[in-house]
Each structure stands twice: as structure tokens, then as C-alpha cells.
Design a protein around this nucleic acid. Structure first.
Lengths: 240, 240
DNA sequence: CGCGTTCTGTAGTGCTCGATATAGAATCTC
DNA sequence: GAGATTCTATATCGAGCACTACAGAACGCG
């Protein structure tokens, strides 16, 4: 075990411990389509109404699942690994999250809203596409090599060599959508005159995505933060 | 066969097509250390001496295994998948190749000598490091998107999310050794005055490796040859 | 209290994994 | 031919996989 991780750490930092908004089981189908569940309407969102209350922190358990999927990928993370790390037994996992696919879908959504949010944030907050990409690449270098969590990017690594086509396709589509969004942002900036006329949105988006995904792999191979920040800076030199 | 010497005795020659030079079972431990087999000295290199002859083409079977490992990775490729594709039964596979690990080690060696040889060749044949890297990146773009075989690079993808640490480590070391070799080549060129004084060998090697590994991932996500060749050309613009 | 509801732990389900015991078939040397 | 050797096919091994049937436990509600 523990090939790509930094110092273990159980995290446990941001736990809100709510259990308030936790649904009963099947959430949205989100990106990774679950089995075939019709997505029951369920209760009106508030905490449990009748019956034995859940004895574990759903949010904390989800965070543990995220770490595992991040480190070992979707397929190499077994339900037994998950239940052990989450501190629960299989029936509790299935009652709370549906099945492994649905749990992974929730993990992906959680990742995009937490550790993976830096990219969208950088593009949204910087005044120009160029500044946004520069910040995105530098933050990616820091993020991918952060010793507080597994190295690399969950969206990039977790479905590599996965034999469940639906899972692979769903996460791939998220990656490609990010590339398209980046291209759109650059194109809009060029149209608005914020970037030089010679700027090629498609090429820059493809190049940035390539560097970003390469940094994830390099981080997994042990490349350090400084080295990848240097790569990020170098990559910006191709901008016109 | 380039990487290692066999552990003493029997060079075993260089695998031609027929069953001629095929060894009995365990070959060199090569990069991916096999279980713990002492690698028997075996017969003096020439084809089988006594007993029932092998009924399948060892080389062709190895090629089929290469395709499978290339497409699905080490762990997601099952022995059942392998025997089906190779047209043999499990005992034949184990008799001819040792075990799954040893078969994968042979596949890796074969890949480096065939589809993966372009990189070393580009660096060796071009007069300068810069020209070598430019050619390497362009050929990588073509190679990674070639419809005649799985996309991406076997050395980069096949051990992602693999739970066998020895296999992961062995292939990772091959990747990192390639980065170091690239850096050495650039450094030698700078020392010889073939590259400008401002050239940073370590940074250029890291950047090139990042782009190269990113292209593999982008190819798996469907990026086309033209798009990746554009990325390769763009990447060269960071050279001083 | 009793009742319905929901969660939890034990203990499994059928399936696939990598690897092999065994016996028979095909080739060698003598 | 006899015997040794090596390969092949059938059938299977124990372990692990995702997942669940079942019964008891913990709650809200009447």
C-alpha cells in the first residue's frame, strides 16, 4: 500500500459533522451514472424522521472514501478497503450511498467542489484568461504535490485502467468538458480584446490540458512542487 | 534485451520470430522483478531438445499480451483475458512465461524495443538535444494516436492504479530514468556548446517529460494526432 | 407499552482472480 | 520399441471481489 501518498494523515480537518442534509441513499446520478436507479424523491431533505439513526458521520465517511479513491483509483479500491477506512460495515455503506458506483460519483462531485475547485476558481477570479491559466497551473503544481493528500489529480488518475466503461466515460467527459470550458474562456477573452489577436484558443487549451495532466503524472512519479511550478511557469511562455 | 544482462550464463540470444530462440520459461528478471525465481540456467540457447514441442508461436502470443497490457494496464488484464487473446490455456502460459508478472516484464522489454524505441532513437540520431526532443515529441504525438494500436504510452499508463508495488515501482523507475537520461543529454549538449548558455537541462527535461506524459493521457481521452503535434510544436517554443 | 421504520452486524451469496495438480499427448534419446 | 522429457487440456484450488439476506437493535409515534 501507500505508493503515491505523502505522510498518511487522516485529515479530519474540515468535517462539518452535520448529518443534517444527508440524504437517505441514492443522490443524484451526477456524472457517474449509477446502476439504473430511478432516483427516488426521498424525504424532504431534513434529518431522519423515523427509525434507528445513522451511527456514523456520513460526511466524514465520504471524505475517507475520497482519499482512498484518490490514491488507488476507482477499481483498485475495494468495498472492503472502503468499509475499513470509513469505519462501517458493508450494509451501512450500501444503505447510505447506494453502491460503489454511486459512492464514487459522490466522491467525484465532492472532489470537484473541494480539492479540484482551484481551476474553475482561478479562471473565474483572474481578469484575463492568461492570468487565470497561469494561476491555475501554479496552483495545480502545489495541489498535485501537497503531502497532506494523495498526489496528482483524482479526475485524471482514478479511472485509468478501469474496466467499467460507464465510469471511465463519465470522468473522461468531465476532463474534456474542462478543456472545452478553458477554450471558451480564452476565445471570449480574445474576442473581447483582452488577448492578442494571434492567440489560438483551441491550441492553448489543448496545450494547457496536456501540461496539467502531465503534471499529475509527474507528481505521482515523485516530482516535487518546485519542479512542477517551474514547469507551470515555462508553459506560460508559449502564450503570444 | 537492451536493459539487462541475464543473471549469468546463457545470453539466450535475441528473440527471432520462430520458436527457435525461445527460452523455456523464466527469462531475465528485467525491470519488473518476478516472484522470486532464481532463473534457471536452462539449455544452451538452441530450440527445445527433448519432449513435446510448443504448439503455439511464443512471439505472436507475446505480441497479443502486449496489446492487452497496453490497452487495459497490468492489473485490469486478467490471466483469462491473456490466455483467450493468446489462444492458449493457463498451463501453457505459465510454462512459457513464468507467471503474470514475468510475462508483463517481457512485454515491457518488448515495448521498449519496438513501439517505445522512438524516443531513444530520436535523441541518438539527431545532432542536437533540441532537435532530438523536437522529433521525440512529434513522434510521440503520432505514436500515441496511431489507430493501429492502443492509444497512449504503455510505460505511462499500464501501472496507474496498480496495487502491486513492485510492478508500479519498476515501471516508474523506467520513466524517471528516461527523464534523467534526457537531462544528461541536454546537459552534455550545453557543455559542448551545441545549446545556448541559458539552457536549463533539468527544467527542460522535466518540462518535456510532463508534456510527453500529458500527451499520452490526452490521446487516451481522444485528442487527435494533429492536435498533439501542435502541442509538441508549441512545447518547443520554451527552448531558449 | 406496541408498532412501524430504519440502521447495524453476522454471515453469507455467486463470481472472478492468479495459479496449479493431474493425466494424457507429443517429441526426444537410446 | 522403452523411457525420459516437455507440453497441453481439464478441472480445480483458496482468496478476494461487489453485494445482500437475515435478524436484532435503536429510534419516532400512537
Amino acid at each position: 500500500m501507500a505508493t503515491t501518498k505523502g505522510p498518511g494523515t487522516t485529515g479530519a480537518g474540515t468535517e462539518t459533522t452535520t448529518a443534517g442534509a444527508a440524504t437517505t441513499a441514492a443522490r443524484a446520478t451526477t456524472a457517474v451514472g449509477a446502476s439504473g436507479a430511478p432516483a427516488a424523491p426521498a424525504a424532504p431533505a431534513t434529518g431522519h424522521r423515523r427509525g434507528r439513526p445513522r451511527s456514523f458521520d456520513r460526511d466524514a465517511a465520504l471524505e475517507q472514501a475520497l482519499r482512498l479513491f484518490w490514491e488507488h483509483g476507482y477499481e483498485a479500491t475495494s468495498v472492503a478497503d472502503l468499509t475499513t477506512a470509513m469505519g462501517i460495515r458493508p450494509p451501512s455503506l450500501y444503505a447510505a450511498f447506494g453502491d460503489k458506483r454511486a459512492l464514487f460519483a459522490e466522491v467525484v462531485a465532492r472532489y470537484r467542489e473541494s480539492h479540484g475547485a482551484y481551476a474553475t476558481r482561478a479562471l473565474a477570479e483572474e481578469p484575463t484568461a492568461r492570468a487565470g491559466v497561469a494561476r491555475m497551473l501554479r496552483e495545480a503544481a502545489a495541489q498535485a504535490t501537497d503531502p497532506d493528500h494523495p498526489w496528482g489529480c483524482l479526475l485524471i488518475t482514478s479511472t485509468v485502467n478501469c474496466t467499467t466503461p460507464e465510469v471511465v466515460e463519465a470522468v473522461r467527459e468531465l476532463r474534456n468538458a474542462n478543456v472545452r470550458a478553458l477554450e471558451s474562456r480564452i476565445r471570449a477573452d480574445v474576442a473581447a480584446g483582452h488577448e492578442p489577436a494571434g492567440t489560438d484558443p483551441a491550441a492553448l487549451a489543448q496545450f494547457t490540458a496536456t501540461v496539467l495532466q502531465g503534471m499529475s503524472q509527474r507528481a505521482r512519479d515523485g516530482a516535487g512542487r518546485a519542479a512542477l511550478e517551474r514547469v507551470a511557469d515555462d508553459a506560460m511562455r508559449i502564450w503570444p
